[in-house]
Amino acid sequence: MHGLNFTAIDFETANSKRGSVCAVGLARVMDGVVVESTSWLIRPPRAVSEFSPINIGVHGIRPADVRTAPGWAESLRRIMDFSGEDPFVAHNAPFDRSVLRGACAESGLAAPENPFHCSVVLARRLLGLEVNKLPHVAKALGLGGFKHHDAGSDAEICAAAVVAIARMHALHSLDVLWPSAGRASSSGARRA
C-alpha cells in the first residue's frame, strides 16, 4: 500500500461550541500501516471552556481532568509536529475540521491548511452499511472493539478502517479513495 499516507484525527469537545476542544487523538499511517498513535487531554480556550453535562456523558471528560492539560496553542503545535503536512482523515471530517478551526479562532491562531478527508463518506460509498457510525464500520470490517468517544481509540480505529477499506477495494492512495480529493468531503453535522 505504498503511498497511502495520512493522519487520522479525532477531537472531543467540552460543549456544543466547536472551539471547545478538550481531547485529541492522532494515528499516523505510512504506506498503509499505522506507525504511531498518540492522544492527550486539552484545556479548552477560556471563552468556551464550560463543560456541558451532555458532552461529559458522551466522553467522560470533566473540568478537573483538563485543569493542568496543555492549552490549544501547545496542542496545535504538537498536532502539527506529529502530522506534518499529512492530510487528515476523520470519521465525520466536517465536525473535526470545524473543531480545529474553531479552537484556532478562539485562540487567535491561524488554522493549518492540511486537507481533510471523511471516512464516513468512504464507508457510505464502499461498504453499503445501513448505519455508518464508527462502531458499525469497525464491526463490519472485523476490527474488534474499541472505546468509542475516546479520542485516541477513535483515531486509531478510523485509521484502521480506512486501511481495511483500501485493502478490500485495492485502492492504494487518497486520490482514489476520495476521488474529489482537493476538497473536503462532507458527511453531516455531528459525530458519527
Rank of each mutant, 00 (worst) to 15 (best):
F82M: 08
P115Q: 09
S75H: 02
E85I: 12
G84Q: 04
V131I: 15
R167N: 10
R67P: 08
W178H: 12
G145K: 14
S107G: 06
S173R: 07
L100Q: 10
S119F: 04
P63V: 01
F82R: 10
V137A: 10
A159F: 03
A159T: 02
G71L: 01
L122T: 04
F95V: 12
I79M: 14
N132G: 12
N132K: 11
V137Y: 11
E74P: 14
I165N: 05
I165W: 04
I61Q: 11
A90C: 07
P87R: 10
G145P: 14
L109V: 02
P63N: 04
S153W: 03
A69K: 04
A103G: 10
E85L: 12
S107E: 07
L141Q: 02
V162C: 11
G84M: 01
I165R: 10
L129Q: 07
K139Y: 14
N114A: 04
A64L: 05
S98L: 04
L177V: 03
S75T: 03
R67D: 12
L127N: 03
H59V: 00
R125S: 13
D154W: 00
D65H: 12
A161T: 08
A105N: 08
L141G: 02
G71T: 00
A164S: 12
A103H: 09
I165S: 08
V121D: 15
E74T: 14
R77G: 14
C118Y: 02
D65Y: 02
P87H: 13
F95Q: 08
H136E: 15
N114Q: 10
A64E: 14
N92D: 11
A123V: 06
